[in-house]
Write a protein that binds this DNA or RNA. Sequence first.
DNA 1: TGTTGGCACTCAACTGGATAGAGTGCTAAT
DNA 2: ATTAGCACTCTATCCAGTTGAGTGCCAACA
Lengths: 349, 349
Amino acid sequence: MQLDNRKKEVLHAIVDDFVSTNEPVGSKSLIERHNFQVSSATLRNDMAELEHMGLIEKPHTSAGRIPSDKGYREYVNSLMTIEELTPQEQLEIEYRIGSSVDEVTDLIKNATHTLSEQTGFVSLAMSPRLKKSFLKQLKILMIEPGKALVVMVLSAGVVKDKVVRIPNFLNDEQVMKISGAIEKNLTGKPLDEITLVTVETAGKGTEVPEPLLKQVLYEAYAAIKQADELNIYLDGEHRILELPDFSSLGRARDLLGTLSDSGMVAGYVNEMENARIQGGNDSFMIRIGQEITLEGLEDCSFITATYNVTDSVSGNIGIIGPKRMLYSKVISQIDFVKKKLNSEMKKFT
Amino acid sequence: MQLDNRKKEVLHAIVDDFVSTNEPVGSKSLIERHNFQVSSATLRNDMAELEHMGLIEKPHTSAGRIPSDKGYREYVNSLMTIEELTPQEQLEIEYRIGSSVDEVTDLIKNATHTLSEQTGFVSLAMSPRLKKSFLKQLKILMIEPGKALVVMVLSAGVVKDKVVRIPNFLNDEQVMKISGAIEKNLTGKPLDEITLVTVETAGKGTEVPEPLLKQVLYEAYAAIKQADELNIYLDGEHRILELPDFSSLGRARDLLGTLSDSGMVAGYVNEMENARIQGGNDSFMIRIGQEITLEGLEDCSFITATYNVTDSVSGNIGIIGPKRMLYSKVISQIDFVKKKLNSEMKKFT
DNA sequence: TGTTGGCACTCAACTGGATAGAGTGCTAAT
DNA sequence: ATTAGCACTCTATCCAGTTGAGTGCCAACA
C-alpha cells in the first residue's frame, strides 16, 4: 500500500483545499486550482484508490471527497511542510507573553490566552509537573490559633501555599520549631520522594508533644502533596462557536460539556504526555479525530507541546481545534509559544 | 395604567405557560390550561390591552403572545410568589456546599458550581469586597535574593499573598524588620485606608538604607492593593447550549463571547451592586433583558444576591439565564445558596 | 499499462406552490 | 362587559420538480 508521488500530491491538495474552503473537493475543482498535468478522470481514479486506502471519504455519493482521520494523519506525518511564522506574528506573540509577571502561574495563563487568540481555537496548558522539583524552603506561619499557612518555595521558581488546621494550643514558637525541622531535613528533596514517613522522620527531634506534632506534620505533608497537584488552564472555549465546523450545535455542546470537566481533560493530557515519553519522544503530540478518546472530541484535533521549566520539570501547552485546521501553521504557533514560554520560565528559576 | 385582577391573572398565566412550554401562548390554549370563567374572546380583548401596555408582544401576527421585558418585570415585581425549595433540594445544596474546604476561595467556587448545577444556568460569584476588611497580619518572607513573598491575613478570614521583587542586597533580617514595622503600624486598618503614604510612614523607623527601604515598602503596598482586587468566578458556561432559548447559535456565541471577558462581567456586577445599595437595598438584584447593558445579554436575565463574610465585607453570587426562566424557583435557589454561603463563611472569621 | 473523453447516474440543495393550523381582530348580538 | 362568529394573517410543512457538482465505468488511445 504505497503512495506514488502523484497520489501524495492529490491527497495534499485535497487536504489543503478542504481546509481552506470547508467544502468537499471534487476532481474538477482540483484540476482547476492546482497544476496537475493530467485530466480529471485520472484524478478520479487516484481518488478512488485513496478512498479505497481509507485516506479520504465522501459525505455522500455525489459529493467531493474530504480527508479521513487517516488522511489527516498521513498529511501531518509525511506530507506537510512546517510554515514559519511571519516576523509580525512572532513579534505579536513575544509581546503578549513577555509582559512582565511576578508569578509562573500568570505567565502560563498569558501564554494560554495568547495561543487561543493567535490560533482562534481553544487553548490549554498544564501547570508544571512539580514531582521532580525539590523543596527550597518550607515555612509554617501561624495565622491564628488553630490555623496556619504552609508556604513552600520550589526549585522550579514556584511558590505554593496552603491554609491548614493545626491544634489550638500550639504557639508561634512551637510551630516555628517544627517548620524549621522540616525545612532543615527536607530541603533539596524532590517532592515525589517526600512521603508522610519522611516528613514524620524530619520532625522527630522537635520538642513538641507527640500527638500535636503528628497532626502538624500530617498537615505539612498534605500541603506538600497538594503543591504537586496538576492544574489545567483552558482558554477561548467560546471560539468554538465561531468555527463553521461546529455550527451544528450538538457537536459544540458535547465539546464544551467535556471541556467543562477540566479534571478529565487534565487526565487525558497526562495520558498523552506519558505516551509521548514512551513513544518516539517527539516534541509534539498530535491526536486526530477518533484517535482522541475523550467523549465529544471525535471531530477535533488535539495538539500539545511540552515546555520546560527545568531539566526535570515540564508541562504542556497546546490547542483543541477542528480536524480541519492549518496544521502547518498551528504547529509553528504552538512551537513558538512554547519556546517563548521556555525562555520566560528561565527568569523564575 | 392599572391592571385589573383578571388582567393580572392573564399575564401571570401567559408567563407561566410560556416559561414551561417555550411556545407563544394563544387565547385558546390559555382557556384550556387555566380555569378562567370567561371565553377566549374576552381573553383576546385583555391580551390586546396587555399588548397595548407593552407587557406582552407577538413574534408575528398569527402567533400567540410572549411576555415582554416589561411583562417579566411586572411578573417578578408584583405577580409571582416565591417557591420554597423542597427539603430534598435544600439537602442537596447543603451537602454540596458544606463539604469541608480550607480556603474561602474554594468555598465560593463550590457554591458557584452548585448553583449552576441546580439551576442549569451560568452561575457566577464575586470574591468578597475586601476594602473594608482589615489587616490582621502581614509578613514578608525572603524567597531568594531579590525575591520575597508578602503574606497577608485579613479580618475576613482570607489569606492573600504575592511574590514581589526586592533589592538583591537585602538580607533576611532587614526584611523581617520592615515586615515587623508594617505589621505593627497597620494591623487593624481597613485596606481602603492604607495608601502608599501610610505604608511609607509605617516603615519609617526601620534601620534600612533609604532607597532600598522605599522599594520594599512600595512592593508591600502593591501587594496590599492587589489583595483587595476583585475576582470573579464563572461556572457552567456550557449549559447555555443546552437551553432551547439559545439554540440559534448566534445568540449563544455573543453571550459566551461576552462572558469570556470576565473583567467586563465583574465590572457590570459591581455596577449592579452599587445600584442596589443606592436603590431600595433589596436583597436581590434582578435585571431583565434590555435592562442589562452588557452586549450579548439582551435576551438574558441576570440575578444576583449579596452574601456576607462580615458586616462590612460582602460579595455577590447569582446566575445568568434566559429571560424565560422559573423566576420564583431560581430566586429561592440563589437565596438558599447565599444563606448557606453566609453560614459557611462564619467558620472562617 | 496508465491516461483520457464521454456518458449515465446519484444525491443534496434549492425552488415554488399548495395546504393546514394556530391565532388574531373586528363586529354584531346578548 | 362579554361572547360567538367569521374573515384574515402568517408560519410551518409537505411535495414535486429542477439544478448542478460530482462519481463510476467503459471504451479508446499512447
